[in-house]
Amino acid sequence: MSGEEEENAAELKIGDEFLKAKCLMNCEVALILEHKYEQLQQMSEDPMNQVSQVFEKSLQYVKRFSRYKNPDAVRQVREILSRYQLAEFELCVLGNLCPETVEEAIAMVPSIKTKGRAHDDEAIEKMLNDLSLIKKFE
């Protein structure tokens, strides 16, 4: 399992399959799972019995750690972050953790500062500002 050994999210080594896949922020997962849960509720009396433990735990988790609650804000976050040439994975880590300072952002997502990428501190700061604005006006 040599692929397993080299895995390191800090350097964005998460395997081709996941690098190309669509990442989801916690708030997006919350929207998807709640929608699915409502559908189940309409079909049966006791939806909690219908779902797996994995589903139940994930739903609780994303509800607890969603930074943005309303669907419009969630969409805006993705739109704003996608202007900054981030990888999907980086975008979602930032959206989930909402770092407040440039230093914190770089600690959370070290790969944005790697060589050959055009993120200087100013650009990162602007991005964090944009994010906190959404939160404020939600």
Partner: peptide, 11 residues
């Protein structure tokens, strides 16, 4: 929707 933890990931 899958949940996959990665080494080096912060959550």
């Amino acid at each position: 929707v899958v949940f996959r933890p990665f080494k080096g990931e912060i959550l």
